[in-house]
Design a protein around this nucleic acid. Structure first.
Lengths: 220, 220
DNA sequence: ATCCGAATGGGTGCTGCCACCCATAAGTCC
DNA sequence: GGACTTATGGGTGGCAGCACCCATTCGGAT
C-alpha cells in the first residue's frame, strides 16, 4: 500500500441545501475525495477560494445572484485555477456549450448515478479535456467527438461587442437605447443584432432573451 | 414512553438522484419518519401508491413525463389520498399557487435547512392547512396572511386565456403562430397581448419573456 | 332585467424589428 | 501584401408589434 495519498479537496457550490447534502454524502464516502467547503451561490464560491486550498470546484450552473457559469468565468482567470465540474439539472446544449466555453472540465447532470459523479471527479482531476457522463444528446456527442480528435471548434462564439449587444437586447432595451448606451449608431446595433441572430440561430429578440437567461448571461 | 409509535411512511418522488439521496438521508435520520419508496417521475409515483401504503408523498414540482403537480392532481382524486408536500427549486408565485390549487399540504424549497423539511413533514401530517418554511417572497407571504385571516383571494390579474397567450409569447412564438395554435384570429391574439402588456405594466414581448421566466410560467 | 367582464374580431397608423444590399478603417494571420 | 475578421456606418423594403379606435356575444353577478 502507498502511504495514504492526499485526498482530492473539493469545493461544492449549490444553492439547494438538499442537493449539497446528497452530493457531499456520495463524495465523502470515497476514500480519495473530500468536500472541504460549501457555497450557496457563485459569489460565495469565488470568495471561498480565497480562503481554502481546493483542487476541484463543483458548480451548479444556475444559482441566485451569481450563477455557476458566471463564477466559472471568474475562477478560470485566477492564477492557479482549480479544475471545475459543472452540475446541472438540464440536459440541453446551451448550458453544455457555455460550460465548455468557460473552461470547465466536465458537465454532470443531477440525475446521474452516484458512481458517474465520482468518476467524473477523478477524470476531471486526471486532466482529461471534458467529461460528460450519462445520456447526452447526439448533437453534443458529435461536438465532443470532434473536440477529442483535435479538430478546431466551429467557432460559433460571439465577439465581445456582440456579447455586449446581446446582453442589452436580452435586458429588454430597444435598438435606439442600445445605440445611445454604447455611443454607436443605430445601424451598427442593427448590424450586431443581425450577426447575433444568425450565429445563434435565433429568430428575434424574444428568443435572445431566453438564450441569455439560459446561458446565465443575465438575470431573469 | 409510549410503545414505539408507527413511523410516518413516506414516498419520495424526484427525478434527480442526488436530491433523493439528500432528502432520504435527512428523513431516515428521524425516529418518526421513514422513506418507504422512491419514484423518478410523477407517473412512477402514482403507480407506486397502488402497491405501497403511504402516509405522505413528497413530490418535486418539475419532473419529466409527468410533473409533480400533475401527479398531485391525480393523487388528490384517490379514495384515501395521502398528504402531499410539494418540493421545489423555485421560490416563485406561479408554482406556489399551483401547489395550493392541487390541494398540497405544503410547499418546501430545496434550499431550506434540514430541520425545516422535517418539520414540514410533521406539520403536514398534523392536518395543518399549509406549510411554507423558509424565506418566501413578500408577495407569497401577503397572500398566506390574507388566506389565514380568511379573506378572499384577489387572484391573479390575468384571465386564463391571457395566461395561455402570455406563455406562448414568452416561448418566442409570433402572433400569427399563436393565432394558429389557439385557433382564434390574429386580431384577437393582438388584443390579448395588448391587455397583458397593460395589466403587467410591460413594454414589449422581450419583457414578457423575462416576466414569465421570473414567475416560473415557462422554463428558460 | 341589467350590467359587467371575458372572449371574440375588425380597422388604421406609427414605429421598430429584421433581412437583404452596400462600403470603410483597423487589426491579425499567413 | 493580400486575406480575413471586427467594428463601424448607410440604404431600402417588408412585415410584425403595438396603440388606440370600434363592435358583438355570452355568462355570471346584482
Amino acid at each position: 500500500m502507498t502511504p495514504t495519498p492526499a485526498k482530492i479537496r473539493i469545493l461544492l457550490a449549490d444553492d439547494h441545501t438538499l442537493v449539497r447534502r446528497g452530493v457531499r454524502l456520495i463524495l465523502d464516502a470515497e476514500p480519495d475525495l473530500e468536500v472541504v467547503a460549501e457555497a450557496a451561490d457563485g459569489a460565495e464560491a469565488v470568495a471561498a477560494l480565497r480562503d481554502v486550498e481546493v483542487d476541484l470546484v463543483i458548480l451548479d450552473v444556475a444559482m441566485p445572484r451569481m450563477t455557476g457559469l458566471q463564477a466559472a468565468r471568474i475562477i478560470a482567470r485566477m492564477r492557479t485555477p482549480p479544475k471545475m465540474l459543472m452540475l446541472s439539472m438540464h440536459d440541453n446544449e446551451q448550458y453544455f456549450f457555455e460550460a465548455l466555453k468557460v473552461g470547465a472540465s466536465g458537465y454532470v447532470l443531477k440525475s446521474v448515478a452516484d458512481e458517474d459523479l465520482v468518476k467524473a471527479c477523478r477524470t476531471a482531476m486526471s486532466g482529461q479535456a471534458f467529461v460528460y457522463p450519462g445520456a447526452m444528446s447526439a448533437l453534443v456527442r458529435d461536438y465532443l467527438d470532434r473536440l477529442n480528435r483535435g479538430e478546431s471548434l466551429p467557432r460559433t462564439v460571439l465577439t465581445e461587442r456582440e456579447d455586449e449587444v446581446l446582453k442589452l437586447i436580452a435586458e429588454g432595451h430597444s435598438t435606439r437605447e442600445i445605440a445611445r448606451e454604447l455611443t454607436i449608431s443605430y445601424k451598427t446595433v442593427e448590424r450586431h443584432r443581425e450577426n447575433i441572430l444568425a450565429k445563434l440561430g435565433l429568430r428575434d429578440r424574444t428568443q435572445v432573451t431566453r438564450y441569455a437567461i439560459r446561458a446565465g448571461l443575465i438575470e431573469p
